[in-house]
Design a protein around this nucleic acid. Structure first.
Lengths: 337, 337
DNA sequence: CTGAAAGCGCTAACAT
DNA sequence: ATGTTAGCGCTTTCAG
């Protein structure tokens, strides 16, 4: 693999001329450019990025840390991020840390050593002290979907609370008063916000919030849901704060032969594939996932280019309630309960 | 950001001693090690990977090229790859090229400049001449899911043909003789193999293959499927060679109020989420997606470590037919047709 | 076991 | 417009 110097020797010009031709940094005479191009195309040449970076420059690389890629939300978001980064001339160093903070901490340090220009992170947990090293080195960070608490970084989230309120109010508009909120054990920011929205919407209408916390084990829904459905007063609607929860619950309701939306109306978070395939189709609060990714890159690049250390920004994207059948909208003769 | 030399100065030892402590390369006396560690923890130190690489070493980085991440198959595969790479001490430079060869070509060259140690690729097209540069520079490649044609690289695929045969034979065992194969316009390797398997299974039983090619536009199924279902002889079963096709077809069948499996039995490729959520649940030919990812990394690392240029290997993983309801297995009184 | 020197491939900063 | 020089931060090499 030939170096700049090799090309210089062959084409009979100085190294800097070659460098200038390769990078288009400054004017070079027609003929030297010709000579250099000829030499390059003859023996081939690939600039060595490592050498370039030694001059103190940062790599044209963005770091991306997500909890995992198997989850469509993260995957679609990562896809959009990669795409946007690429279009801006950056490569993407990606880590799926398996929801594991130890891995997150270690990999993030490795990214720093590789001199990434900036970092986009969907934090796996509340623990995030290790990101301070980035700020010390003036490497900008943006957190997506969940904030990095107590960190002076840009943040991009969706309006989870408002989305939950919308969903619950919609169920209420169908006459439901006993609405169950299905939430998860692991306390992540988004879940809490949605739960808060649920509570707010219920209390505003002076309704009693009823929350079922689902453990992380697969059979967890199966254990707890049936009993709850038979309790008094009878639950007539369910709001699930995450798609995984919704899927499990729907499987269980299906097994119990519960009619949706007649016996139980249902609204879930996230517009998962199956939502339009099931009978009935599922009404969901949809997040602008790809937009989240693109926006994250824009915000980050802005910081990188300007080098500004102004007060961190918090950008909030809107969700949209996709009304389908499971909320009861498909049913013509809906009697109020 | 302090350098090795800084640490050396502070701790009052030579740079090489510092280097040796940091890398654990060779024996260092207790006390120098002590001094160095102290200095490091006092002012902090992060090795500069770029400088390390200048000595001709390749980066501990694997390249990963996939068509996109929004598709769960690629996402789960990428997830497994990242995980396995990380566990082996490699970072992952990832590109989702949007099924676009031009992007693939360009990004792959950038990876080369970054001195990646090896490349894992799910090719977006048949065009792949640009990968030859890697082989020239002795950077190993492994192609996953689809082979790199005419390239001397390791390949990891699943047995698509056999999977299709299994699926079609299963439908035949239910008495179906008029089985429609739903396939896509874009001619990718996997699709062709599955189609070939379908044809083989049909011809073996002296049955007439019937293939419907679905265009890439969303409404394509809606246009062509209804007419076909009314044609003679009546189709009684469908085999869809990809999950996207299956989803579209299932949506359409649902709209047409076609009973599955009574009127039409159905088997699809890929174990998509919705398969267990729909009514009926969908029988599928499932690929070992995560295993595909892990195996790819193992094979690649083997090459990287050994540096061997032996004949390329082709590893074939088995699929499994997950029998659920849509094939007709749930129906007790199944009359042969 | 330790240190000094050379140089990896490139570019910023000066020369010319 | 072009060439020359001096490093960037590290490790390989060779001497102590």
């Amino acid at each position: 693999m030939p170096t700049l110097a090799d090309i210089a020797k062959i084409s009979g010009v100085g190294v800097m001329s070659v460098s200038r031709v390769v990078n288009g940094t400054r004017k070079v005479s027609r003929e030297t450019e010709e000579k250099v191009r000829k030499a390059i195309s003859r023996i081939g040449y690939e600039p060595n990025e490592a050498a370039r970076m030694l001059k103190g420059h940062r790599a044209r690389v963005l770091g991306l840390v997500v909890p995992e890629l198997a989850d469509p939300f993260f995957a679609i978001c990562a896809n959009a991020i990669q795409e946007a980064a690429r279009e801006a001339g950056y490569m993407t160093l990606m880590v799926a840390c398996g929801h594991n903070v130890a891995v997150e901490r270690q990999q993030v340090e490795l990214m720093l050593r590789r001199k990434i220009a900036g970092l986009i992170v969907i934090p796996s947990s509340r623990e995030n002290d290790f990101y301070s090293t980035f700020l010390e080195q003036k490497v900008p960070i943006i957190s997506v979907d969940r904030p990095l608490e107590n960190m002076e970084t840009d943040t991009l989230v969706v309006d989870n609370r408002e989305a939950a309120i919308q969903a619950v109010e919609h169920l209420q508009s169908h006459g439901h008063r006993n609405i169950l909120c299905l939430t998860e054990e692991e306390i992540v920011f988004t879940t809490l916000e949605r739960l808060a929205g649920y509570n707010e919407a219920m209390l505003t209408q002076k309704l009693q919030p009823r929350v079922l916390v689902i453990g992380s084990t697969a059979g967890s829904v199966r254990e707890s849901l049936p009993a709850l459905l038979n309790s008094t007063p009878t639950i007539t609607a369910i709001f699930a704060v995450a798609d995984v929860l919704a899927l499990e619950a729907l499987r269980e309701l299906r097994r119990l032969k519960v009619q949706i939306p007649e016996q139980i109306a249902f609204i879930a978070f996230d517009d998962f594939d199956a939502a339009t395939l099931m009978t009935p189709t599922i009404t969901v609060a949809a997040q602008p996932v790809a937009e989240l990714g693109h926006t994250a890159v824009s915000l980050l690049l802005e910081r990188i280019k300007s080098g500004s250390t102004d007060a961190p920004r918090r950008v909030v994207l809107k969700t949209s309630l996709l009304i389908r059948e499971s909320c009861g909208c498909g049913i013509l003769a809906k009697t109020s309960k």
